[in-house]
Design a protein around this nucleic acid. Structure first.
Lengths: 188, 188
DNA sequence: CGCGCGATTGAGTAATTTCAAATCTAGTGG
DNA sequence: CCACTAGATTTGAAATTACTCAATCGCGCG
């Protein structure tokens, strides 16, 4: 049950009464999407932050030459959005797209703020999540600075082995910041 | 006055009464450091998160070959730490060092938690800061994926022109992820 | 079966690194 | 105030690495 997954996810950080969880849930909408659907399109508003119940998303940015770069994958239990666009109200600079059929909970900025006001301890939960997101992003920066593409590949494989069953290698290459040919040669 | 700078910084996000600010301040200590001092040393505990009142810090990681890589600079009004080590209690994997004489406020993890419990709205402030940090880190990842070193240089110069007056170019090169020789050739 | 997508392989090219040397600069002590 | 030194920057040349472009291979699905 999707609600149970969200509740257990939150309760890893903060305990909730039934009423409190109902309050939380009332601020979200629920959506099912098919593979290749876009949750956020570059150039349009980033209306929601998404919680992935099941499935897999890619956060993608295109460079000047139209080449796609994967900024992040988002799998079960992850929160994702174009956060800059979401919080600032600017047009999205990245797209968020389903790599599999995907089930998500969605929250708008006004509901995000309303929920924080209505239930202050959810702000603690969000702070923990945001800190973890910040740390993860910094680790990724670090890997670009200190590791070779081969090392980054090995780290990713070790940390998210299931990813390699779920996405084509060209997407792994895009995430690692190398061409698919180079990745192919690194592996063999 | 250092306290004023911290207060104004927080009040950009949330208003505070005098009593509330006193409460906030009582959770921090105050330190002055000289150029080249270490606030955090790799392999030791990351006891504090630091708020930079004045001066300049570098967050540095060494790779297997002992080469230094700059993960972040922290200037006036910035918060910095080895956040993973700070929150997890693990030994620091990065060092935080003064590039100039630097004045900071320091907060321990237990005071961080105590302050959040004592003054819930500071959690809102910290959430905004953490979200912004996450966004900034993601922008940096994006720049590694989509931009050339020259473009990253131009972006940095545009965004933080003062940095180029304050640090040697070899540190800029380290931050951008290229050798100092390459940076030198990119500029000319 | 054949099409399309993904993965691999090869060859040539472009970019970056490394190592070495030369030059420049700022701060120190005499 | 000058000379000196350590650190910073630039330049050169060779070696490495990754990229692009192209061709081929493999496999699953209609």
């Amino acid at each position: 049950m999707p609600e149970t997954i969200l509740r257990q996810h939150i309760e890893k950080i903060i305990p909730l009464t039934d009423d409190e969880f109902s309050l939380v849930l009332s601020h979200f909408t629920f959506e099912k999407h098919n593979k290749r659907d876009f949750l956020i399109r570059k150039g349009q508003a980033a209306k929601y932050v998404y919680f992935v119940v099941s499935g897999l998303l890619q956060l993608v940015s295109d460079d000047d030459k139209g080449k796609q770069h994967i900024v992040a994958f988002a799998m079960e239990d992850w929160w994702e959005s174009d956060y800059f666009a979401f919080f600032s109200g600017n047009k999205a600079t990245m797209s968020l797209q389903c790599l599999e059929d995907t089930v998500v909970f969605c929250i708008t900025l006004s509901n995000y703020n309303a929920l924080c006001a209505a239930l202050p301890k959810i702000e603690h939960f969000l702070l923990v999540k945001s800190n973890n997101g910040h740390i993860a992003a910094q680790q990724r920066i670090l890997s670009f600075l200190t590791s070779t593409a081969k090392q980054r590949y090995d780290q990713l494989l070790k940390r998210y082995p299931s990813l390699f069953q779920r996405v084509p290698k060209k997407l792994i290459a895009s995430y690692l910041g190398v061409s698919r040919e180079t990745l192919s040669r690194l592996i063999s």
